[in-house]
Design a protein around this nucleic acid. Structure first.
Lengths: 344, 344
DNA sequence: CTGAAAGCGCTTACAG
DNA sequence: CTGAAAGCGCTTACAG
């Protein structure tokens, strides 16, 4: 095990000062080409790497982004929502492309997550990812902002929240997919998914659903809305409720694919057919949604683009540039579960 | 934007020396309870966090693990193999539980990845994750070892490789799933997946397949093996090959679920039925495999356990403890694609 | 273009 | 139990 080389070792061998080594390696213009070449050469021979801790300490920045994954408190301990898993993948890739390291962490609302990363200089900025109610940590977000910590949120737009937000247009997605069902001729359309303040994404999708129905004068007298959060089990239970209600809806808009998959199970168990007896649509376009029987009509959120947007927005913020909220368009993905021909 | 507090600020307010602050905050026994309480109290008030860069620089360790994801060179830029995505999830969780931060990074065989992390003190150790041929970076692994860098590999056991290895018993998995097909009465069984040195995992699965056939005297005169790497497209193409061959096999062992899913597409396109006309089995038990039509019989690798093993093994290595290779058992998951009753 | 020096914010022997 | 001091390995004004 060789001792690790430092900039002094290189300086010694190159016959220059340590300052010059540092400059040469950092592409400072204040070094002659000749000196730089020699230093770089020796650094390579010695397999030298700049010590990031020392460099970061001195520069007071880390070239690292932190990703905070908030978990659905209801999720099984060993599973991550597939949608966020795919976001994780695209964020990882986007940070790498931007030359930043990515620190990944799960959060269970630990007391001091708001300070943990930037105050400790582990990261230059934070990406907050997770469904749910940012209101509950509103004060923490405010504190982040007050401390000058850079962060971006993924989720539902909310003018009231501190910080920049990147999200997908949940209202439009809910509207579109409901309108699509209406265009198929369905009238009696239910919604499965909680839609209170604690679930702003679902709430926006629900609003889109309602407005689409309203536009076509199909809004039922009593709302056909059933609570469920984003797990298969919850979707399964909610759909059993639906199936036990006096009048069976002809179509169901589920607030997420996970819910829709659970609903599918409940329907099959009841020996009913999708879409013949009841049509089902989901939301998210998680990988599995293309493989259910029948394939799920759903709304895609472009995770690749989302990852890029989150990362570039955060980096811009770190570099003191003006940054803006961004609302990505939703994209309808039509498969068989809605009863449309796939070419529709 | 408040200035960030340092240990000196706390020392000043507490009327003690900065050394004492550091000790108090690091739970050193060399501090009176009274002093510690006061320091901790003030630290909280000032919202103080230890600067990790300074602390790491001084301690020469980072409390961070690096995860290097090697990509299948054949994979689409925006997609990660779902199996590795699920490993990523479990490794993230396991590191967090162990109190380590996790730095995630993709690798395209950049020249100096072997030194990038530990030499730069960004991480205390490295987890190498990715299918493929470790032989091609054998020299780099050797260098890692020589430099005293701590690392664990996920993948096929290989006595020739430097470093510790955690993996799942690919041979046993291939054997079991093939034996299962034989038990269903199939005789003419093909294998789809490359099985050369560059794909050690697939190779081991193929060996298991062959030995199972051999045990039952079913080994064909000419090997029924078709190359494919782990993507749907490649599986689709390979299965078209199979379907064009003079005698159609009755069952096909695919080296991965992704391959099997592509194969399923090719078979359905040819208007054949699974499992009636031809049985298909996969490997990995990726989430989608439960939702294909029919559901895929496959081999599960316990990713939760794998993540924990990788992390704890690496941490043990970092702490200078003796560490060992570990081979996890494979686990047969029976669904409809093999023609068995699910309760089989 | 180069060097000598200060200092980033800690931890930890050393001395009491 | 506590404090004064050294030093981790860099980057960057400052002076030439």
């Amino acid at each position: 095990m060789k001792e690790k080389a430092t900039s002094f070792d290189i300086a010694h061998r190159a016959g220059v000062s340590q300052s010059t080594v540092s400059r040469a390696l950092n592409n400072s213009p204040l070094v002659s080409q000749q000196t730089r070449d020699r230093v770089v050469q020796i650094a390579r021979e010695l397999n030298y790497k700049v010590d990031k801790n020392a460099s970061n300490l001195r520069k007071q920045k880390s070239n690292t982004l932190a990703l905070l994954l908030f978990e659905d408190p209801t999720t099984d301990d060993s599973l991550i929502n597939p949608f966020f898993l795919s976001m994780l993948g695209s964020i990882t890739r986007a940070s790498a492309n931007a030359g930043y390291d990515l620190l990944v962490s799960f959060q269970n609302m630990a007391d001091d997550w708001h300070a943990e990363f930037e105050d400790s200089n582990k990261a230059d900025g934070i990406i907050l990812l997770g469904y749910g109610d940012y209101r509950s940590y509103r004060s923490k977000l405010a504190r982040l902002e007050e401390q000058g910590t850079h962060f971006v949120r993924w989720g539902a737009q909310d003018k009231d929240q501190p910080g920049v937000n990147i999200g997908c247009d949940n209202y439009q997605g809910g509207f579109q997919i409901t309108r699509h069902l209406i265009a198929q001729g369905y009238q009696n359309i239910a919604f499965v998914g909680e839609c209170g303040e604690q679930a702003p994404e679902f709430k926006a999708r629900y609003q889109g659903y309602r407005d689409a129905l309203n536009t076509h004068h199909l809004l039922p007298a009593t709302p056909l809305q059933y609570d469920a959060f984003s797990t298969e089990d919850s979707g399964y239970a909610a759909m059993q409720h639906v199936l036990n209600s006096p009048t069976l809806p002809r179509a169901v808009v589920c607030a997420s694919d996970l819910i829709a998959i659970g609903a599918l199970d409940a329907i099959h168990e009841a020996k009913l057919k999708v879409p013949e007896d009841i049509a089902i649509v989901g939301y998210d376009n998680i990988p599995v949604s293309g493989y259910t029987s029948p394939g799920l009509t759903t709304v895609r959120q472009n995770t690749t683009r989302a990852g890029e947007l989150l990362v570039t927005t955060l980096i811009n913020a770190i570099n003191k540039q003006q940054v803006y909220d961004y609302l990505m368009p939703a994209e309808l993905i039509i498969r068989r579960s809605c009863g449309a021909k796939e070419s529709d």
